[in-house]
Design a protein around this nucleic acid. Structure first.
Lengths: 339, 339
DNA sequence: AGCATAAATGCAACCGGTTGCTTGAATTCA
DNA sequence: TGAATTCAAGCAACCGGTTGCATTTATGCT
């Protein structure tokens, strides 16, 4: 095969252990020897075999990423690429690798997780979601592997490290933004309610509305779960109401696009006839027509911090289970107008 | 640590090699012994250590994915998640893992690649792009590792396995689609021209226009390279022409959204005042306003097939270097009208 | 029954590193 | 100068599997 530590050792007239220590820049080795061995390594084109190192050190310098199920819809929103970008950035710094689950269904993803953990393929895991009736997080707890959740864990949240926005607060602020523009009939369009984030945002919405002593209207609370047509249907339902809303809080930017299209088909102009504030501040909200006022959840930071926490935890498994809240900011564009 | 093959062997009164063979379901082992060992494994909660297996077998069952640089722009288009989905699907079937490059810059990504390859972290690689002055592909060739490129390699394409659309043909068909609607003044809006795909699509566009004996107008050929404002500028330039185009071919769906917004700001209606055909058929084109007629490049299939080819190649490194062309189809929506 | 042959299991080396402990060399100090 | 101490390098076991070959056990055949 390729050149090993032993080949280098033989060539340089030292022991393999010495070569190993040169590689790790151990203080036990004199500079003279280091230079000598380094020279031989260069000449022979030596490169460390990570698998061997992993086996010997029992550490993989790899973090596993657990995705939510990989249906086209769940992948297509911009969350995934952006969070990966953040995680990558930190991993790159610490020379960690990233390994992805490959399963499509929840069941497959669970199996992938078990394989990663029990197969010792990763040092820690990042879970990209928090949802009801999830088997993965309980399994991770039981397994004892370091992990962090992006989103707020629904169980034992005190013992689990997580990185999240304050989604309740963020949704409250978004709603208040509309309220302060004079809107009183505001509808909330969420996404799949089994995810914690949806519920939190809905709660924030409700808090804001209650805060102004306005009634919560059941018919103003909707979830887009099944793509374009479902989105159109929901918009239709809202517009057909005796008192249709004058403003919308939309929890997801891709859904916002759907809503925008549906509104346009009904000849409702944003922001003139309808104000909208959305979440995530992906490029989509920037390039939409009109550009959308949005709550920037700083997805990149979410990824970056989660990797940061995880790597700390991997290095010191006893560490205090902290949680990090990434602040959100409203970035104003052209989708909101005073009533 | 955890339970090893030796622990199981001791408990079951067999040799470690026997346990190993039970795991791989070797025909050398009698059913009786298999059952006995299996039982002990279950009782003890044994799980294979992949690192050890990797080291012993010199195979990682992992494929590395080389991204183009991970700027927000390059990640945000829907190509990345969708191609990953396709790759994942196949990897999942064959029990392969996926490892991602983490670097942000081209330089870092090159380093990541070298680490993966020389560090024996992967059995093969998929390169998600084909571009000019790329160092990665030449390195992969030199290293001898199995790899496949998504896109058409610019060097030694006969010796490299690749999976691609026929982008020339696809762009030609897209343009002809507009020509057949009676449009004669058609502009082409591409993306970063250092990528092979952009050039191919431009060529297809030119072929189609030439095919109708129409002149190629230099001023009808544009590239959006720097996001929203650049996109708006380009649209302005096109509209300010003495003879502005009546139809557009836009090479990327996110850019299409930008164009759509820019047109709308100029009060140009799609499709009434301007027809548009775009590429990629991501959700974006589906939910845009209006829904966009698009060339479906079947990104998922691109990913799926590339993984398929790669795994074949890993299993038989001598195999013929085939290349796979994924057919494209035009899916008609509401962004084109006869002149 | 006796021997050839086939089937099942064990032995031990190997994959390519790491690391605690020991030994040998160099330096310090009295 | 010799003993004590420090510094550098080597030895060998280990990480947890795999696999070619040797050995034992079971089966077939005359």
């Amino acid at each position: 095969m390729s050149v090993t530590i032993k080949d280098v050792a033989a060539q340089a007239n030292v022991a393999p252990s010495t070569v190993s220590r040169v590689i790790s820049d151990s203080p036990l080795i004199s500079d003279k020897t280091k230079r000598k061995v380094q020279k031989v390594m260069d000449e022979m084109g030596y490169h460390l075999n990570y698998n061997a190192q992993m086996l010997a050190t029992q550490s993989t310098k790899t973090i596993g990423i657990i995705m939510k199920n990989s249906t086209p819809e769940s992948m297509h929103n911009s969350f995934f690429p952006e969070v990966i970008r953040g995680i990558s950035a930190l991993c790159s710094k610490h020379d960690f690798s990233i390994s992805l689950t490959t399963g499509e269904s929840e069941e497959e993803i669970f199996t992938d997780t078990v394989k990663m953990v029990r197969g010792k393929r990763v040092d820690g895991m990042i879970v990209l979601y928090s949802k009801k009736d999830d088997k993965v997080v309980p399994y991770l707890i039981e397994s004892g592997i370091p992990f962090v959740v992006i989103g707020k864990p629904l169980i034992e949240s005190g013992k689990i490290m997580f990185v999240d926005n304050d989604n309740v607060q963020a949704a409250k602020e978004a709603t208040e933004f509309l309220l302060n523009l004079g809107h009183e009939k505001i509808a909330f369009i969420g996404e799949d309610e089994q995810f914690e984030v949806s519920e939190a945002r809905l709660n924030g919405f409700i808090q804001a509305v209650n805060g102004k002593n306005l009634d919560i209207r059941e018919e103003f609370i909707k979830n887009i779960q099944f793509g374009l047509n479902h989105g159109k249907q929901i918009v239709t339902e809202l517009l057909d109401l005796a008192e249709p809303p004058t403003a919308l809080v939309v929890s997801d930017d891709l859904n916002a696009l759907i809503v925008l299209t549906a509104l346009s088909e009904k000849n409702i102009k944003v922001p003139d006839d309808m104000s909208m504030i959305v979440f995530n501040n992906s490029v989509i909200s920037e390039v939409a027509n009109p550009p959308l006022t949005t709550v920037d959840t700083q997805i990149y930071q979410l990824g970056y911090e989660s990797a940061n926490c995880l790597i700390e935890l991997v290095k010191d498994p006893q560490m205090f289970r902290k949680s990090v809240i990434i602040p959100t900011v409203i970035v104003e564009r052209n989708s909101c107008l005073p009533l």
